[in-house]
Amino acid sequence: MTRTLVIGFGNTLRGDDGAGQLAAARIAELHPDLTCFSLVELTPELADTMSVYDRVVFIDASVGIETLRWHVLRPSVERTQPRSHALTPGDLLQLTIELFNSAPQQVELVEIPASQFGFCEEMSIHTRSMIENFVGLFGETMDLHAGDVAYLVSAHVSDSSQSVIPSTAN
């Protein structure tokens, strides 16, 4: 049984920026057995939490893209400089591996297209539909072993875009 942790993050009071949180909340509704966090930002203690899971899926809002991007994060990602209390998923993966010695087999980053960041709780139509799109696709990856998800996702990564939408789970 794959132990899966879903972490959606962003600010729900800034329009589309809350896409990650909403997506995680939707997954929590549909899959009550999963651990799903909806967070304002990523904080270092998540590294400790992550270390006991097989698969971790980060969901964030992203500007300048039209469709979902679904990456497999590799541990050898370039180190970025955390400038603030907030960290990136790559930072957290790095922390988990180096400090807690048992990293998840598979860490994914899902970027949801976002365009409007006004002071409101609503999201744009495109962002909302992309969230639903992702939630559906995520369901299809649920029963897979972490390694198979990696195959599924990486098999679809094109060199130019580094993005993927897994079509079906077979």
């Binding site: 904080t43 270092p44 203690e45 590294a47 400790d48 939490t49 180190r79 400089q81 955390p82 930072d91 790095q94 922390l95 180096e98 400090l99 807690f100």
Partner: peptide, 25 residues
Amino acid sequence: PAKRNVFGLMEEHKDFIRRGIRLRK
């Protein structure tokens, strides 16, 4: 500056950072 951060620290002060994270948790 590129190394003067929590990741730069991990090379030599792993236990220190791990404990800090746990304390915050």
